[in-house]
């Protein structure tokens, strides 16, 4: 089937011309810097980041050294934590900083190869060796611990709720039960299922899509981590954040299950960056501007371990350390 008529040809040429014009008419004004853009802190932070000394040899570490870079599964679309900046192709955010510092800790240079993930495939990427580590708001759960190990936890984060202004009847997380709740696949859905088992999750691919869906009335509320919710609410006066959080949980760095020594190295890395104040620095640069809240105390790494039974306590405490 081919198109051969002059009108269509003309239309196509017009499109191509428009495209070419857009390519040439570039750079007139740059995009405003996004809050939480780790770009400004990244370099400074990285130069201060430690390099691991006398690391024991483990299969994963050997593979990373052989490759010359850390292959990390991260999100492309998680503002404040790990977001790919199309303007320069770099990753920015708190988790992006952690990933780069981890690479420097392991290799002496912050060489990271990012593999973008979706929520279905994180375990698979670790198990099949595509990724050395998953740094992507990866909630520590007993089910996952059967498949992967967790370094950390490196942060506790609660879920917040965004609604259209004037929305009544949601005063606590349990009020979401029976409602349509918009969210992205990932930790938010898991938290929602715990507090409101009869809520209907309405899942979209990106946060932008979720917000548009909320504005279009596709659901009663949009839940996501506090940083995203607070930041987006400030930009849209038609939306408001509800004054509670829920489902605070511990997040860890997903690691291959069969390499306990490597997990200890990662725990050691987290302890070091927390002691040196780098953790707080990165949080201050990336997350605090979004949440408008002071930097919390980092969690103690090593709690997650490789033992499934150890994972439950943080998830079961409903009030968040990061809550307002």
């Amino acid at each position: 089937m081919t198109l051969r008529r002059p009108t269509v040809l003309a239309a196509a040429i017009a499109c191509a011309a428009a495209l070419a014009a857009s390519l040439t008419a570039c750079g007139s004004s740059e995009l405003p810097d996004k809050p939480g853009g780790g770009a400004k802190s990244g370099g400074d932070l990285l130069s201060r980041a430690p390099v691991g000394q006398d690391l024991p040899s483990t299969p994963t570490l050997e593979r990373i050294r052989k490759n010359g870079h850390l292959t990390a599964a991260t999100s492309d679309t998680d503002p404040g934590f790990s977001e790919k900046n199309p303007l320069n192709g770099k990753y920015q955010g708190f988790e992006a900083d952690l990933t780069a510092m981890l690479a420097k800790y392991l290799l002496g240079k912050p060489e990271v190869k990012h593999v973008s993930i979706n929520a279905d495939t994180r375990e698979a990427l670790l198990q099949n060796g595509t990724a050395d580590a998953v740094v992507s708001t990866y909630k520590i759960t007993p089910e996952r611990m059967r498949k992967v190990a967790f370094g950390g936890p490196y942060m506790n984060l609660g879920q917040a709720v965004l609604v259209r202004k004037g929305m009544k009847g949601i005063d606590k997380a349990a009020d979401l039960d029976g409602r349509k709740v918009i969210t992205t696949a990932g930790p938010s859905v898991e938290s929602l299922k715990k507090v409101a088992p009869h809520a209907t999750p309405v899942i979209f691919q990106t946060i932008s899509q979720c917000l548009q869906a909320l504005r279009d009335g596709r659901g009663d509320a949009f839940i996501n981590n506090q940083a995203v919710i607070v930041a987006r609410a400030q930009k849209d006066t038609a939306l408001e954040v509800l004054p509670f959080t829920f489902g605070s949980a511990s997040y860890g760095i997903g690691l291959p299950k069969d390499d306990p020594k490597f997990r200890e190295i990662v725990d050691g890395f987290l302890r070091t960056v927390e002691e040196q104040g780098l953790w707080k620095q990165s949080w201050k640069d990336n997350v605090s501007p979004l949440t408008k809240q002071p930097v919390p105390e980092p969690p103690k790494p090593g709690g997650a371990g490789g033992d499934p039974s150890a994972a439950t306590p943080p998830a079961s405490t409903p009030t968040a350390s990061t809550g307002s």
Partner: peptide, 17 residues
Amino acid sequence: SYPELMHQGNVLGSFLE
């Protein structure tokens, strides 16, 4: 996780909010 056009369109759409 292959960075094809549609996926990168999503990334860009997310970045531009």
